[in-house]
Design a protein around this nucleic acid. Structure first.
Lengths: 162, 162
DNA sequence: GCTTGACCCTGGAGTGACTACAGGGTGTTA
DNA sequence: TAACACCCTGTAGTCACTCCAGGGTCAAGC
């Protein structure tokens, strides 16, 4: 099948397919007389494998390693476990920071209800206050990293009126 | 203060500071006779503002917009709300997919306990099965996107023994 | 005066995983 | 013959940095 058909069958953009080939994840397919790439079932499968791994957010470098395990099933699989464990640890760490982020943004969002000028906007106030190292709604409880005192146009920005 | 001092004070890498300047987020500072950048309190504050926004995962483009609100407090703040709302929506969507990802990886991880050859590895089996469109532990319940049947070396990879 | 070492400068390249585009060729249908 | 969908290669752009080469500046110590 042609590249467009492979893309259709797998839901993968043809640019991405060519990218995988260049990156060494998909083997170079045979070519037709007109130079078009000619894919077979094995390409389709391999591409599906890659996409499934990517859906699990596994990096292309790690997908490459997994493909080597597929090609060499006699190898000890301890490294596969490590790879998945590391991936799981990464995902869990990111999950934690995303949760914190969600809390912070929610808190920030609650600072501003009705429409008014930016000078009176609680969100902007909070962000500017955070720049001063003051406790902000979004990072409340988290010790501020800054301890500087400074006066500038930003310090008064939130106070000026239109 | 010099760039190194500003970096120290804010915990920001000096390369990143120069990057922000080139990207138009930090105004170009004055220069000493020797060409060194000379920063003041306003720069420190602005940099802290940027970093706080980045900690909330707000893109540099959006930080730029927020900085314009800081400079023009007379403007209606509706756009700030939209910006934060959009950010919150992005974060929540990502959070959801991260949660699903965590579940999927956990399920996948539980497929392989003791050490053995890759050919017997449940993780690899699952990943290959997923490439065939079979229901996999990681995406169980989720209808498979692929419906192709294919035979290749990948199909038998998980079955061969060392 | 000389060396050492910390600090600063610019400009450019690299990261990951694509995505977009320019400028061309091929194949089918009307 | 033209229109149009599809394919090719090669290059550049995205985001937010990060790293590096190759140089200049400055204070302290010998």
């Amino acid at each position: 099948m042609r590249i467009g058909e492979l893309g259709q069958a797998t839901g993968v953009d043809i640019e991405t397919i060519r990218y995988y080939e260049k990156a060494g994840l998909l083997p170079e397919p045979a070519r037709r007389n007109n130079g078009y790439r000619a894919y077979g079932a094995s390409h389709l499968e391999r591409l599906a494998f890659i996409r499934h791994c990517r859906a699990l957010d596994i990096s292309l470098a790690d997908v490459k390693r997994l493909l080597e395990f597929v090609a060499h099933p006699e190898v000890d699989c301890g490294d596969i476990d490590c790879l998945i464990d590391a991936q799981l640890a990464r995902v869990r760490a990111r999950l934690e920071s995303m949760r914190a982020l969600e809390r912070q943004l929610s808190a920030l969002r609650s600072r501003c209800g009705a429409r008014h000028s930016a000078g009176d906007c609680g969100i902007l106030h909070e962000l500017v206050a955070a720049a001063h190292g003051e406790a902000c709604a979004c990072h409340r409880g988290v010790p501020p990293e800054q301890d500087k005192t400074a006066t500038s146009d930003m310090a008064s920005a939130g106070r000026r009126k239109a």
